[in-house]
Design a protein around this nucleic acid. Sequence first.
DNA 1: CCTACCGATCGGTAGG
DNA 2: CCTACCGATCGGTAGG
Lengths: 213, 213
Amino acid sequence: MALRRTRKKTADKSTYHHGDLRQALLDASLALITEEGFGALSLREVARRAGVTHAAPYRHFADKEALLAAVAEEGFRAMTSRMKEEMAREPSPIDRLGACGVAYVLFAVENAAHFRVMFGPHFTQPLTPTVLGEDADAYGLLVGVLAEAQRAGEVREGDTADLALACWSLVHGLASLLVDGQLDPEAVAGGVAALARTQTLLLVGGLARPPVD
Amino acid sequence: MALRRTRKKTADKSTYHHGDLRQALLDASLALITEEGFGALSLREVARRAGVTHAAPYRHFADKEALLAAVAEEGFRAMTSRMKEEMAREPSPIDRLGACGVAYVLFAVENAAHFRVMFGPHFTQPLTPTVLGEDADAYGLLVGVLAEAQRAGEVREGDTADLALACWSLVHGLASLLVDGQLDPEAVAGGVAALARTQTLLLVGGLARPPVD
DNA sequence: CCTACCGATCGGTAGG
DNA sequence: CCTACCGATCGGTAGG
């Protein structure tokens, strides 16, 4: 899988059959959700797909929720990384804001299973950026670039938190509608990337500071 | 429950224990999702809560998906109805647009179980407005008021479908974040209604046609 | 990381 | 709408 990290090879294969069972379990979870839907996710089936018996996962995860939390954390890191990449290409703050939003939507569509786990109502204790660390703080990234765009005079003044929530809501809503298949196929005909750009620009355009003539 | 329809009383209680088992099953499904989460929903537990044996629901629903489809349909009707109510209070098209968005978010938060079923990835065949009828066409309502606002010169020109999707994405995203508990409690401290108004107005403000001086 | 085992739940059907 | 029954899966643990 694209998101797999480098494997940590272990010498003693006789007692540790996988190079990295933990990672194999995360990958198997995503494949299972992608192929059979979230409802089909069980620790036993995940173990089966990873090629181990159903007791093995408990060596790495206390329970199902712990496994899901690990999947979500991996997802937040990957999404944040993706956003940073796309933003790095843009010279102006407002363009970085747009790139940030497009990256959010594209990550969701290309990693639907991750996205579902990240934002589903699965966790007893919320997965705050504080818990996950700054490598996974996608929201912080958004707030940062938005504030920067305001300081540069490219985005209208106003409560940054309010504006950030509007941005987040728009891209999260579009991503959710796409991931959950709620959009008329006709609307998506031109491609998800184009759609994400159009929508993001609509909001960013609405937020842009009217040029002072 | 607020959404229960009038019960159809049956004379022959000996063979038909409930006045309306079908509706009782829908209500029980929502209560179960609300209290135990979506993962806890099973036909057997729903039957238990409705006070019948686990074979009884099959008299009304072919399977779990059919029950969920009925819940979703009820939800779409209720949401559409709620939107119409709120819109009827506003005299101008652009205010009706705002009221429409606020109603969407409030419905979602006040009927989280319904909302989850309506937009979850549960259905083999999509629940299109065409299938559900115009009483349940919330999206059609949005497109209608948006087009009206454009004709009245209160909203900028542009592809109505694009603008409608931006509106839908924003309110759907905000609703999803709220329903899934992703928002910082601090952000919601002022109340969901106020938050929904702020956010909706931000977008509507962005879409508004700049006054021609 | 495996084998063996526990109690519990589930979807669905036969037959009345 | 009920009783009785089917095969199957699940989460979790003991013990090695």
